[in-house]
Design a protein around this nucleic acid. Structure first.
Lengths: 126, 126
DNA sequence: CGGCATCCATCCCGATACTG
DNA sequence: CAGTATCGGGATGGATGCCG
């Protein structure tokens, strides 16, 4: 049932399909969406709230892409008025939580240092 | 001297500066460049070779951006003909190695599953 | 060798408006 | 509520050519 394992993918090689996999994983909103779903299924509106700033259109597109890659499952509850749609990480999708959460923690942790470095750099190049 | 630590950055908040930090870390070539420099300094041409497919222009731009963020140090050796330029991770830059390497390993590991999911998805939506 | 200058494709992505 | 449709702009990235 092969979740994972194969040595034929090397991301340093030009044209390797793993590159497109990595690119989707690092799409603008993916590092925010996937950790947001780590706690369990969320409806569209709740997800949109959890990922402040994303538009409906882009959120839909990104979710579609994640769904296509097998990372997210979309469930529609028909017998609900108004309609209810939930998004949930698949088993495969859950393997992305830790790597992306680590990246996110990194950004929050070192943001002060990076911002300071930018100031220094910009001050020196006037 | 504060490398790290502060609780005021929350990436889920719209407008939080940590978002721009994350975006640079997930720029197209950054996840390939930073791990490539994990083993030590490399010259421009060696780096370009290690990251197959990147153009000189984009590699320069990305390195500039990493330099501005304080993640990469650029050293020019003047007494060399032809000129020799080396790029090296800073202390701050080295903190990015593990998160990015994890992401890269994830992509290589699960690429088969993702590709298969895409086939299934595309087959179902004709 | 290690760039920068140009030009150009395209592709995210966002704002707005509208719908079952 | 959970989208879709449309438009458009700005950033990103690639090809080519020139330079110290």
């Amino acid at each position: 049932m092969s979740v994972g394992h194969d040595e034929k993918f090397d991301i340093t090689v030009q044209g390797c399909p793993s590159r497109s996999v990595l690119r989707h994983a690092t799409d603008r909103w993916t590092p925010l969406i996937v950790p947001a779903l780590a706690g369990g299924a969320l409806r569209f509106s709740a997800l949109k709230e959890a990922v402040a700033g994303v538009s409906s259109k882009v959120l839909t597109e990104t979710l579609r892409s994640l769904q296509r890659d097998g990372l997210v499952h979309r469930e529609v509850f028909v017998d609900h008025t108004p309609i209810r749609v939930e998004y949930e990480l698949t088993e495969l999708g859950r393997t992305l939580i830790l790597p992306l959460a680590a990246l996110r923690t990194w950004a929050e942790t070192y943001a002060p240092d990076v911002l300071k470095a930018r100031d220094v750099y910009d001050a020196g190049s006037e």
